[in-house]
Protein backbone atom coordinates (compact mmCIF):
# COMPACT_ATOMS: atom_id res chain seq x y z
CA UNK A 1 0.00 0.00 0.00
CA UNK A 2 2.73 2.42 1.03
CA UNK A 3 4.84 1.98 -2.09
CA UNK A 4 2.06 2.68 -4.60
CA UNK A 5 1.01 5.63 -2.44
CA UNK A 6 4.48 7.12 -2.49
CA UNK A 7 4.85 6.40 -6.22
CA UNK A 8 1.56 8.11 -7.04
CA UNK A 9 2.56 11.13 -5.03
CA UNK A 10 6.00 11.27 -6.60
CA UNK A 11 4.47 11.14 -10.06
CA UNK A 12 1.98 13.89 -9.30
CA UNK A 13 4.71 16.14 -7.93
CA UNK A 14 7.19 15.20 -10.65
CA UNK A 15 4.98 16.04 -13.58
CA UNK A 16 3.76 19.24 -11.96
CA UNK A 17 0.14 18.11 -11.63
CA UNK A 18 0.26 19.28 -8.03
CA UNK A 19 2.64 21.41 -5.99
CA UNK A 20 1.99 19.83 -2.62
CA UNK A 21 0.85 16.49 -1.25
CA UNK A 22 -1.08 16.54 2.02
CA UNK A 23 -0.45 13.19 3.64
CA UNK A 24 0.62 11.40 6.79
CA UNK A 25 4.20 11.32 8.02
CA UNK A 26 5.90 10.07 11.13
CA UNK A 27 9.11 11.00 12.87
CA UNK A 28 11.21 8.32 14.56
CA UNK A 29 10.07 9.08 18.07
CA UNK A 30 6.55 10.34 17.36
CA UNK A 31 3.78 8.28 18.83
CA UNK A 32 1.30 8.88 16.05
CA UNK A 33 1.50 9.84 12.42
CA UNK A 34 0.89 13.52 11.82
CA UNK A 35 0.06 15.64 8.78
CA UNK A 36 2.92 16.41 6.43
CA UNK A 37 3.05 18.61 3.37
CA UNK A 38 5.38 17.27 0.72
CA UNK A 39 6.50 19.70 -1.95
CA UNK A 40 9.62 17.94 -3.21
CA UNK A 41 9.17 14.64 -5.10
CA UNK A 42 12.32 13.37 -3.39
CA UNK A 43 10.62 13.67 -0.01
CA UNK A 44 7.80 11.20 -0.69
CA UNK A 45 9.69 8.75 1.51
CA UNK A 46 8.36 10.74 4.46
CA UNK A 47 4.85 9.52 3.71
CA UNK A 48 3.53 6.70 5.85
CA UNK A 49 0.38 4.64 5.93
CA UNK A 50 -0.61 2.58 8.94
CA UNK A 51 -3.41 1.78 11.34
CA UNK A 52 -2.97 5.06 13.15
CA UNK A 53 -3.61 7.44 10.26
CA UNK A 54 -6.84 8.52 11.90
CA UNK A 55 -6.62 12.28 11.45
CA UNK A 56 -8.92 13.71 8.83
CA UNK A 57 -6.63 15.85 6.69
CA UNK A 58 -9.38 17.60 4.75
CA UNK A 59 -9.25 20.65 7.03
CA UNK A 60 -5.89 21.59 5.51
CA UNK A 61 -7.49 22.28 2.15
CA UNK A 62 -9.07 25.31 3.80
CA UNK A 63 -6.06 26.66 5.66
CA UNK A 64 -4.35 29.62 4.06
CA UNK A 65 -0.86 28.35 4.96
CA UNK A 66 -1.43 25.20 2.95
CA UNK A 67 -3.34 26.87 0.12
CA UNK A 68 -0.34 29.13 -0.33
CA UNK A 69 1.77 26.08 -1.22
CA UNK A 70 -0.06 25.59 -4.53
CA UNK A 71 -2.36 23.02 -6.02
CA UNK A 72 -2.75 20.16 -3.57
CA UNK A 73 -3.14 16.42 -3.69
CA UNK A 74 -4.68 15.03 -0.54
CA UNK A 75 -4.60 11.56 0.97
CA UNK A 76 -8.02 10.53 2.22
CA UNK A 77 -9.79 7.49 3.58
CA UNK A 78 -13.29 6.60 2.52
CA UNK A 79 -14.72 8.29 5.60
CA UNK A 80 -12.67 11.51 5.27
CA UNK A 81 -13.62 11.79 1.64
CA UNK A 82 -17.23 12.55 2.59
CA UNK A 83 -16.10 15.90 3.97
CA UNK A 84 -14.73 16.77 0.51
CA UNK A 85 -18.13 16.09 -0.98
CA UNK A 86 -19.81 18.49 1.45
CA UNK A 87 -17.18 21.18 0.97
CA UNK A 88 -17.76 21.01 -2.75
CA UNK A 89 -21.54 21.19 -2.31
CA UNK A 90 -21.06 24.24 -0.15
CA UNK A 91 -18.74 25.87 -2.70
CA UNK A 92 -15.74 25.89 -0.40
CA UNK A 93 -13.46 23.98 -2.72
CA UNK A 94 -13.15 23.62 -6.46
CA UNK A 95 -12.95 19.87 -6.93
CA UNK A 96 -11.02 20.19 -10.20
CA UNK A 97 -8.33 22.15 -8.36
CA UNK A 98 -7.64 19.25 -6.02
CA UNK A 99 -6.26 15.80 -6.68
CA UNK A 100 -7.75 13.25 -4.33
CA UNK A 101 -5.73 10.16 -3.49
CA UNK A 102 -8.04 7.68 -1.84
CA UNK A 103 -6.51 4.91 0.22
CA UNK A 104 -8.51 1.78 0.91
CA UNK A 105 -8.75 1.29 4.64
CA UNK A 106 -9.66 -1.79 6.62
CA UNK A 107 -10.24 0.22 9.75
CA UNK A 108 -8.14 2.33 12.10
CA UNK A 109 -8.78 0.36 15.27
CA UNK A 110 -11.53 2.71 16.37
CA UNK A 111 -15.01 1.73 17.46
CA UNK A 112 -16.60 3.58 14.56
CA UNK A 113 -14.59 1.53 12.05
CA UNK A 114 -16.58 -1.54 13.04
CA UNK A 115 -19.70 -0.02 11.52
CA UNK A 116 -17.91 1.68 8.62
CA UNK A 117 -19.43 1.36 5.16
CA UNK A 118 -16.79 3.45 3.41
CA UNK A 119 -13.66 1.31 3.52
CA UNK A 120 -13.14 1.92 -0.17
CA UNK A 121 -13.04 5.55 -1.35
CA UNK A 122 -15.62 6.28 -4.01
CA UNK A 123 -14.81 9.70 -5.41
CA UNK A 124 -11.02 9.72 -5.50
CA UNK A 125 -8.97 10.53 -8.58
CA UNK A 126 -6.43 7.85 -7.67
CA UNK A 127 -7.26 4.91 -5.48
CA UNK A 128 -4.61 2.90 -3.68
CA UNK A 129 -5.44 -0.64 -2.61
CA UNK A 130 -8.75 -2.34 -2.45
CA UNK A 131 -11.28 -2.89 0.30
CA UNK A 132 -14.90 -3.97 0.27
CA UNK A 133 -17.65 -1.67 1.37
CA UNK A 134 -20.15 -3.47 3.51
CA UNK A 135 -23.69 -2.24 3.90
CA UNK A 136 -24.35 -1.20 7.51
CA UNK A 137 -27.83 -0.67 8.83
CA UNK A 138 -28.69 2.69 10.38
CA UNK A 139 -29.49 0.78 13.54
CA UNK A 140 -25.92 -0.46 13.73
CA UNK A 141 -24.38 2.85 12.75
CA UNK A 142 -26.25 4.75 15.43
CA UNK A 143 -26.17 2.07 18.12
CA UNK A 144 -23.88 4.17 20.33
CA UNK A 145 -26.34 7.06 20.24
CA UNK A 146 -29.39 4.86 20.69
CA UNK A 147 -27.88 3.39 23.81
CA UNK A 148 -27.28 6.85 25.18
CA UNK A 149 -30.78 8.02 24.28
CA UNK A 150 -32.26 5.23 26.35
CA UNK A 151 -31.10 6.92 29.51
CA UNK A 152 -33.69 9.03 31.33
CA UNK A 153 -33.61 12.70 30.41
CA UNK A 154 -32.25 13.82 33.77
CA UNK A 155 -29.37 11.35 33.42
CA UNK A 156 -28.54 12.74 30.02
CA UNK A 157 -28.47 16.26 31.42
CA UNK A 158 -26.25 15.14 34.29
CA UNK A 159 -23.95 13.40 31.85
CA UNK A 160 -23.48 16.55 29.78
CA UNK A 161 -23.07 18.70 32.84
CA UNK A 162 -20.19 16.50 34.00
CA UNK A 163 -18.64 16.35 30.54
CA UNK A 164 -19.01 20.01 29.59
CA UNK A 165 -17.81 21.09 33.01
CA UNK A 166 -14.36 20.01 31.80
CA UNK A 167 -14.47 21.89 28.49
CA UNK A 168 -11.85 24.65 28.50
CA UNK A 169 -12.91 26.10 25.16
CA UNK A 170 -9.63 25.38 23.44
CA UNK A 171 -11.71 25.03 20.27
CA UNK A 172 -9.71 22.03 19.08
CA UNK A 173 -13.09 20.60 18.00
CA UNK A 174 -13.76 23.57 15.77
CA UNK A 175 -10.23 23.99 14.46
CA UNK A 176 -9.96 20.33 13.47
CA UNK A 177 -13.39 20.05 11.91
CA UNK A 178 -13.21 19.93 8.12
CA UNK A 179 -16.62 21.57 7.92
CA UNK A 180 -16.02 24.46 10.33
CA UNK A 181 -14.80 27.14 7.99
CA UNK A 182 -16.43 30.41 9.01
CA UNK A 183 -14.05 33.34 8.64
CA UNK A 184 -15.25 34.52 11.99
CA UNK A 185 -16.89 31.98 14.26
CA UNK A 186 -20.12 33.04 15.96
CA UNK A 187 -18.49 32.59 19.36
CA UNK A 188 -15.95 35.24 18.39
CA UNK A 189 -18.55 37.83 17.48
CA UNK A 190 -18.50 40.36 20.23
CA UNK A 191 -20.35 43.38 18.89
CA UNK A 192 -22.74 42.26 20.28
CA UNK A 193 -21.75 38.91 21.74
CA UNK A 194 -24.11 36.10 20.79
CA UNK A 195 -22.90 33.64 23.39
CA UNK A 196 -20.66 33.76 26.41
CA UNK A 197 -17.04 33.15 25.60
CA UNK A 198 -16.42 32.06 29.18
CA UNK A 199 -15.70 28.38 29.74
CA UNK A 200 -18.44 28.18 32.34
CA UNK A 201 -21.10 25.50 32.18
CA UNK A 202 -23.46 28.09 30.73
CA UNK A 203 -20.99 29.23 28.09
CA UNK A 204 -19.99 25.65 27.34
CA UNK A 205 -23.56 24.47 26.80
CA UNK A 206 -24.20 27.44 24.53
CA UNK A 207 -21.01 26.73 22.61
CA UNK A 208 -21.58 23.02 22.13
CA UNK A 209 -25.18 23.58 21.07
CA UNK A 210 -23.97 26.02 18.43
CA UNK A 211 -21.13 23.83 17.29
CA UNK A 212 -23.30 20.76 16.94
CA UNK A 213 -26.21 22.53 15.31
CA UNK A 214 -24.07 24.35 12.79
CA UNK A 215 -23.11 20.87 11.66
CA UNK A 216 -26.69 19.65 11.50
CA UNK A 217 -27.22 17.77 8.27
CA UNK A 218 -23.58 18.47 7.37
CA UNK A 219 -21.44 16.43 9.77
CA UNK A 220 -19.93 13.44 7.99
CA UNK A 221 -19.09 11.56 11.17
CA UNK A 222 -15.30 11.56 10.86
CA UNK A 223 -15.21 11.99 14.68
CA UNK A 224 -12.23 14.29 14.42
CA UNK A 225 -13.74 16.60 17.07
CA UNK A 226 -14.07 13.81 19.64
CA UNK A 227 -10.65 12.46 18.78
CA UNK A 228 -8.85 15.74 19.38
CA UNK A 229 -10.74 16.88 22.48
CA UNK A 230 -8.09 17.09 25.20
CA UNK A 231 -10.79 16.61 27.81
CA UNK A 232 -12.15 13.51 26.12
CA UNK A 233 -15.66 14.85 25.61
CA UNK A 234 -17.71 12.54 23.41
CA UNK A 235 -18.96 15.14 20.94
CA UNK A 236 -19.95 12.52 18.41
CA UNK A 237 -23.13 11.87 20.40
CA UNK A 238 -24.31 15.37 19.53
CA UNK A 239 -23.22 15.10 15.91
CA UNK A 240 -24.80 11.70 15.52
CA UNK A 241 -28.16 12.83 16.83
CA UNK A 242 -28.28 15.43 14.05
CA UNK A 243 -27.06 12.95 11.46
CA UNK A 244 -29.56 10.33 12.47
CA UNK A 245 -32.43 12.84 12.35
CA UNK A 246 -31.32 14.06 8.89
CA UNK A 247 -31.27 10.51 7.68
CA UNK A 248 -34.57 9.53 9.26
CA UNK A 249 -36.50 12.65 8.29
CA UNK A 250 -34.94 13.65 4.99
CA UNK A 251 -33.17 10.52 3.79
CA UNK A 252 -29.95 12.52 3.78
CA UNK A 253 -26.55 11.10 4.62
CA UNK A 254 -24.10 13.93 4.43
CA UNK A 255 -21.24 13.50 2.00
CA UNK A 256 -22.45 10.30 0.38
CA UNK A 257 -24.07 11.81 -2.70
CA UNK A 258 -22.46 14.76 -4.52
CA UNK A 259 -25.80 15.48 -6.24
CA UNK A 260 -27.82 15.68 -3.01
CA UNK A 261 -29.20 19.00 -1.86
CA UNK A 262 -28.16 20.46 1.48
CA UNK A 263 -30.58 19.64 4.25
CA UNK A 264 -30.90 23.03 5.91
CA UNK A 265 -30.36 24.99 2.72
CA UNK A 266 -33.54 23.47 1.36
CA UNK A 267 -37.03 22.43 2.34
CA UNK A 268 -39.89 20.37 1.10
CA UNK A 269 -43.55 21.19 1.48
CA UNK A 270 -43.97 17.52 2.32
CA UNK A 271 -41.66 17.57 5.37
CA UNK A 272 -43.39 15.58 8.08
CA UNK A 273 -43.20 16.29 11.78
CA UNK A 274 -45.36 15.49 14.77
CA UNK A 275 -44.71 18.38 17.12
CA UNK A 276 -45.92 21.60 15.47
CA UNK A 277 -49.45 22.43 16.47
Amino acid sequence: MLQPLRETCRRLLDDGTVQVVIGYGQAMRAVEPYPVFITDPNDVGQLVWNEQCRTNLVKYLLRQEIRALGKPAIVVKGCDERALVVLEQESQIERSEIVVIGVACDGMAEARCEVCDAHQPRFADHTIGHATNKEQSAERRYAHLAEFQERPIADRMDYWKAELERCVKCYACRQSCPLCYCQRCIVEKNRPAVLDTSPTLKGNFAWHIVRAFHLAGRCVGCDQCSRVCPEGIDLRLLNQSMARASEASFGHRSGTDPQAELVLGNFSKQDQEQFIR
Binding site: Y34, P35, V36, F37, K59, Y60, R63, E65, I66, V168, K169, C170, Y171, A172, R174, Q175, S176, N190, A193, D196, T197, S198, V228, P230
Partner: peptide, 25 residues
Protein backbone atom coordinates in the same frame (compact mmCIF):
# COMPACT_ATOMS: atom_id res chain seq x y z
CA UNK B 1 4.81 24.61 12.15
CA UNK B 2 2.44 24.57 9.18
CA UNK B 3 0.43 21.65 10.49
CA UNK B 4 -0.76 23.77 13.44
CA UNK B 5 -4.54 24.13 13.31
CA UNK B 6 -4.73 27.14 15.60
CA UNK B 7 -6.54 25.73 18.63
CA UNK B 8 -5.67 26.35 22.25
CA UNK B 9 -5.15 22.76 23.36
CA UNK B 10 -1.42 23.33 23.88
CA UNK B 11 -1.79 26.49 25.93
CA UNK B 12 -4.69 25.28 28.05
CA UNK B 13 -2.99 22.01 28.95
CA UNK B 14 0.29 23.82 29.66
CA UNK B 15 1.14 24.32 33.34
CA UNK B 16 2.98 27.57 32.60
CA UNK B 17 0.92 29.33 29.91
CA UNK B 18 -0.98 32.14 31.55
CA UNK B 19 -2.49 34.42 28.91
CA UNK B 20 -5.96 35.69 29.65
CA UNK B 21 -8.68 37.78 28.15
CA UNK B 22 -11.06 40.08 29.97
CA UNK B 23 -14.63 40.44 28.80
CA UNK B 24 -17.85 41.91 30.09
CA UNK B 25 -20.69 39.47 30.19
Amino acid sequence: TNRCLGCGACAFGCPACHCFDMVDE
